[in-house]
Amino acid sequence: MDKIEEQLRLQVYLARCGVGSRRKCEEYISEGRVSVNGKSVLTPGTKVSDGDEVCYNGRPVHPEKEHVYIALHKPSGFICSNQDRDGRPLAIDLLSDATHRRLFNVGRLDYMTSGLLFFTNDGDFSKLMTHPSSHVEKEYVVTTKKEIPGELMEQFKKGISVQGEFFRLKNYTFKGTRTVHIVLEEGKNKELRKVFLSRNITLKSIHRIRVGNIKLTGLASGRFRKLTPREVEQLKNQALENKKNNRGKPKR
């Protein structure tokens, strides 16, 4: 096992092993899929040290020596998970030829949403990209079956509540009466679907075309590419700068 110079919380250690994001690793621990020194551990936050044997699904895991960062053009009809009880196609299976390393998705796109999605084995990168305080921009093209009211977009920009959840976009640009580009910073679960359906506006498609400084341009549906070291550094630096600039500001 690679030496751990200090005690780490179990979910942090698992994330550094490429098992998943810290949040996902907390779920795995709670589900009883993780053991330390042969004993099942159900409590996230448990500390591990150099010399401890950590297993996930019965197999020892170790910190990744090399991090991988991949951009995928996810088609609609693929699920962001490492397994699906209903047998639906998995987005990660599109990366079968990318690397032998264990990868996981950074955030997610729902089943019918297409577009740019990152995969990595770097848990710290995943946390930075998905934490609300990082304010990483995600740009979507939303197409509907009927005209989109400008008044709805203005309300969405000011902040709108749907069944007790609060949503707010950062910016929007109409590209027609039924197509709008929307920029989100946080991007809650099925946020766009919930906002439009609250006004009985049926969606034809949601397509993510940008995350931070990375655009989907030139990447065909179902295809992927590795992010360059410069692109990864730019993503990290922008997220860290956003965290710094927004530190101490009241939450919206």
Rank of each mutant, 00 (worst) to 15 (best):
E53Y: 01
K47T: 10
D52Q: 10
R102W: 09
M129K: 03
D122K: 07
S134Q: 03
S40H: 05
L94M: 07
K127M: 03
V68Y: 07
P63G: 03
G123A: 11
Y69V: 00
D97M: 10
Y111D: 06
D86P: 06
K39N: 04
K127N: 10
F78Y: 15
T43F: 08
L109E: 15
T130V: 04
R88A: 09
N105C: 14
R85F: 07
K65Q: 10
D124E: 14
D122N: 09
T46R: 13
K39F: 02
V68R: 01
S81H: 15
R88G: 08
E64S: 14
R108D: 00
G107E: 01
R88V: 02
Y56R: 05
L94I: 06
T99P: 04
N121L: 07
A98I: 04
T46F: 14
A91Y: 04
R88C: 07
H62M: 13
L94Q: 06
C55D: 03
T99S: 10
K74I: 05
F118Q: 05
E66S: 14
P89K: 14
N121R: 08
T120N: 00
L94A: 06
L117T: 07
S81E: 13
D97I: 03
D86K: 14
E64L: 12
L128D: 01
R59V: 13
G45F: 09
D122L: 06
V106H: 01
S114C: 05
L42K: 12
S133M: 01
G107Q: 08
D110F: 11
T46M: 13
H100M: 08
H67V: 01
E66G: 10
T99I: 04
P44K: 09
D52A: 10
F78H: 15
Y69T: 00
I70M: 00
T120I: 07
P75K: 14
S40K: 12
M112E: 14
I92Y: 05
F78C: 09
H131A: 00
